[in-house]
Amino acid sequence: MISAAGIAAQLTELALAVVLAPLLTGWVNQCRAWLQNRSAPGLLQPYRMLAKLFQKEVALAHNASPMFRTAPYLVFGCLCVAAAIVPTLGTDLPLNAVADAIALVGLLALARMFIALAGMDVGTAFGSLGARREMLVGFLAEPALLMVLFTASLISHSTSLATIVETLAHRELVIYPSMAFAGIAFTMVSLAENARIPVDNPSTHLELTMIHEAMVLEYSGRHLAMIEWAASLKLFVYSCMGLALFFPWGVAEGGDWLGIVLALPGLFVKLAIGGAGLSLIETVSAKLRIFRAPEFLGTAFLLAVLAMLVHVLLEG
């Protein structure tokens, strides 16, 4: 049953995700700047940017509909719930009975749909172009992500993320070859989904190559702040998902207070390493032409399918 520690862990997790997400983005940007021999922006730069954006006046296009104004909040809300589902500190989370791995993918897809619709709302060339490209990335990345999660589900006989983490972290150590395939597929998917370099460039200002940035071109002020925050949250959710699937050690089992407290520094270290790894990948790879992106993601999707096959063949 749901314990007090579980509820506390749940709330801590949610709060941590919301508060720390921009920090992770700042860390990735800093690492990237170091690797590229630039002087790095401060670790807290994303917070400063959010504060500035919240202060600014919103410039809304004449024909923006209510959809355009509600979408940033909806996207933010969906990603918050997604962040709350992924077990990062403890596995005894009340929300685990509410939504499983498939629902997590569904929530991410819902957020994507809202932001794409908002991108098309004003009716500029770039908005609709960005929305189309985002959905293009989405329709290949989403099934790939689902297949990665299914591989883990097949191993643990459950789609509940808490059970998956418990199986992978706390039972006897078993090597799962299928997770090697799943890991590569997951890395490719998360690069694409978080608008990272082989597919998109988060710091580009050349409209023709943009995906995410083109879609949100029309946003300003507090709306843009919500969108940016949501983007940070998305990176955070994907990082935590990766940690939960591939490096689940250190997550407290059940409602163990001490374990949850101990899991916290572990999470920081894992996220720091993960962020550095991400910036390394971004530095060493070149951006693909947009027409190559389906090929990249198609490969990820098929690798994820292979992961399931390998599980059935080698581990079944």
Partner: peptide
């Protein structure tokens, strides 16, 4: 697994179609 992948792909594509 192949069938599940096709269902997932179809579901994701229907998101694309409906946004369109």
């Amino acid at each position: 697994p192949v069938a599940a992948a096709m269902i997932a792909l179809t579901a994701a594509l229907s998101g694309y179609v409906m946004v369109k």
